[in-house]
Amino acid sequence: MNIYVLVKRTFDTEEKIVVSGGKIQEDGAEFIINPYDEYAIEEAIQVRDAQGGEVTVLTLGGEDAEKQLRTALAMGADKAVLINVEDDVEELDQFTAAHIISEYLKDKNPDLILAGNVAIDGGSGQIGPRVAELLGINYVTTITNLEIDGTTVTIKRDVEGDTEILETSLPLLVTAQQGLNEPRYPSLPGIMKAKKKPLDEVELDDLDIDEDDVEAKTETLEIYLPPKKEAGKVLEGELADQVRELVHLLHSEAKVV
């Protein structure tokens, strides 16, 4: 089976966020594989181990995304592809990213594409379905279970807490929800092996894409931090009085009850 995983290098949002000049400061910050993409990588490895085939991890970004690709290879992916847009694309939105990724994939004949259901930095959740649509294949988002029997695929997906059980077929794109699996940590031999696994780098020229055709449709004007919350009021006194005061505050001051 020819399996592709779309991964994104993301800012670890558990880090403190500093904004200066309308941009997020990235110096010295920790970067990780988007956590939802880790579920996708793990699932891809499990499907390959059960069905045979090859797992290719694919990312769009700059040189420094190689680190995350190597981590995916160390987990067990077979090959990696970096679509390096660092020098070619100034502004990148979901329209741009999805077009470039699908241009790369269109002659690769993937049977199964996996991705995270959302990236924790940008939070749009658009790339998976957009790529599927551009490739003309079906997609299922926020999956928590995947079973493949021949070309028949049975899926459980999370729908705002409810579970939907559905049937579809390959070729298919799915996006991973938490609960799909427990992503493995790269083992030491895995890390050693990863260094020798192929990591291809391609640029827009290799894909025959004109920058103007993938020009972003949206533009970020400004990034800012939410207004700092004033320190809250920790109530004092007898517990019964505190409870009474809290209800009073919620009712009369905050007017939320």
Partner: peptide, 16 residues
Amino acid sequence: RPIYSGKAFEKVKVKN
């Protein structure tokens, strides 16, 4: 819209 898991916000406009 919120970004970075709600720790920051961005203002976005549609260009065309």
